[in-house]
């Protein structure tokens, strides 16, 4: 009887400082270069290379340039549709946000475990998604107050609200507005974490089931393995969808700030 596989579904999310940087500090705050930071860097490098590859600026684009232009066009169209002509100036931010999350999600799914390297999905950390959500939310607040001043508060009173209802509606709308960064951050974090935990749990089924004997291997191991493959495909989809949702909601919130109602 083979020994139990030590599969801890949560271990993949633990952050480890790399190469003796554990004690790096700025003003008393630890800034150790961790596996999380490493994968942010890898994501950034891959993304930069990807976009740089599409910078040939040919009138008749090659495949790579076409791919990059498809992504910029996709985000550009989304901003035009949600914000209007003003949306063009948010393209750099929303594009970077979308591609950063998308590449992070996809790179985190790479099956590098087979060569002994473990990808780290930093979008499964609410510290990271939270910062991104706060940046988006901060842009909304800054744009809203800069453009409309205190009139921005009329965002919380929809048109046609009866006078007696205004205080109540105002509070409800305010709360729903303030919840936005949390929902934005938690949605991405939970989706990424859930997918990775699920894959890890299923992989432990495959290992433990197959180790428990041929019967278990056929009854548990193989179905779990098939399910894992299917869920990997699903996770690829979720990666793209969550990145899209993050960018879409950001652009919708910016639209509120740009155009009020």
């Amino acid at each position: 009887m083979a020994e139990q596989a030590k599969v801890d579904p949560m271990h993949q999310f633990s952050i480890e400082p790399l190469g003796g940087t554990a004690n790096w500090e700025i003003a008393g705050y630890n800034i150790a270069f961790t596996n999380s930071a490493l994968w942010m860097l890898i994501t950034a490098v891959v993304l930069t290379l990807f976009v740089a590859g599409g910078m040939k600026r040919q009138m008749v684009p090659g495949r790579w340039q076409m791919a990059v232009e498809t992504f910029t066009g996709f985000i550009d169209d989304m901003l035009q549709a949600n914000i209007g002509a003003e949306g063009r100036k948010y393209l750099p931010y929303v594009f970077t946000l979308f591609m950063f999350i998308l590449f992070a999600n996809l790179l985190g799914l790479l099956p590098l475990g087979v060569v002994g390297v473990h990808p780290f999905t930093f979008t499964s950390h609410f510290t990271v998604t939270g910062i991104l959500a706060i940046i988006s939310f901060a842009i909304v607040l800054i744009v809203g107050f800069k453009k409309h001043g205190l009139h921005f508060f009329s965002l919380f009173v929809p048109h046609g609200t009866p006078l007696p209802m205004i205080p109540l509606i105002f509070i409800i709308e305010l709360v729903s507005f303030l919840v936005r960064p949390f929902s934005l951050a938690l949605r991405l974090f939970v989706a990424m974490m859930a997918g990775h935990v699920l894959l890890e749990v299923l992989s432990s089924f495959v290992i433990d089931g197959t180790n428990a004997g041929p019967g278990f291997g056929v009854m548990v191991g193989i179905p779990s393995f098939v399910l894992m493959i299917a869920i990997c495909a699903l996770e690829l989809l979720v990666s793209a969808i969550q990145a899209y949702v993050f960018a879409l909601l950001t652009s919708l919130y910016i639209n509120d700030a740009e155009n009020l109602h």
């Binding site: 952050i15 400082p17 790096w24 700025i26 705050y29 630890n30 800034i31 150790a32 270069f33 961790t34 999380s36 930071a37 942010m40 860097l41 994501t43 950034a44 993304l47 930069t48 750099p92 931010y93 970077t96 950063f100 930093f122 950390h125 510290t127 990271v128 910062i131 991104l132 940046i135």
Partner: peptide, 17 residues
């Protein structure tokens, strides 16, 4: 880890931006 996460994210995301 929060400080290192925030630091590196802002640094790298900012550079990307």
């Amino acid at each position: 880890t929060y400080s290192s996460q925030i630091f590196w994210l802002l640094l790298i995301f900012g550079a990307l931006f």
